[in-house]
């Protein structure tokens, strides 16, 4: 179990690092999907199979699909500005320093209070479901409403509104 965890965590980290450094958006998205699968594996090894499967189905399956569709639809895979300035090392220094500082601070705060890592028990989906519909019923319903709001919002924002162009611009305007 330990080995599995370590391998999948390494995969996840490397895949994420690759995802953010690609020039091509589709490549980056594919790396991201790999990273998500790695995280899912990590979750399985620590005894949360329900979460692991959910991650694969919803996160990697649905959300990433949305991303890929959008990128393909709008032809955003390669964009000109990125090539010019992004790949230089200069642009990466400051965020990396900042990230390193943040990481260091977080490490310090975690490692100052060592915690007991004893038992490990697999938590079944049945337990999660029971909890969701008893104690967390209200938040679940609200989450549903949130999704509804998101759907309505996305629809509204994505509408094509009819634009009244000057009659001389009618033919030259391409949408």
């Amino acid at each position: 179990m330990n080995v599995l965890f370590i391998v999948s965590s390494v995969v996840a980290v490397i895949a994420s690092a690759m995802a953010i450094t690609r020039r091509n958006a589709v490549h980056a998205l594919l790396f991201l999907i790999v990273s998500l699968m790695g995280v899912s594996m990590m979750m399985y090894t620590i005894g949360a199979p329900y979460a692991a499967v959910l991650e694969i189905i919803v996160y990697a399956g649905a959300i990433m699909m949305l991303f890929v569709f959008t990128v393909m639809m709008l032809n955003l895979s390669v964009s000109p500005e990125d090539e010019k300035r992004q790949t230089g090392f200069k642009t990466w220094i400051f965020p990396m320093v900042l990230g390193a500082i943040l990481l260091g601070v977080m490490f310090l705060s975690f490692l100052s209070n060592p915690s007991w890592s004893g038992l490990q028990q697999t938590i079944s989906p049945k337990q999660v479901g029971t909890l969701m519909f008893s104690r967390y019923l209200l938040p679940v319903q609200i989450a549903g409403v949130l999704l509804l709001a998101a759907i309505v919002g996305a629809y509204y924002l994505g509408r094509t509104r009819k634009r009244n162009l000057h009659r001389y611009l009618q033919n030259t305007e391409e949408e």
């Binding site: 900042l98 500082i101 943040l102 601070v105 977080m106 310090l108 705060s109 100052s112």
Partner: peptide, 11 residues
Amino acid sequence: IGLIILILFMM
């Protein structure tokens, strides 16, 4: 940066 400072502060 603010987040970092906050964490340090809380620590």
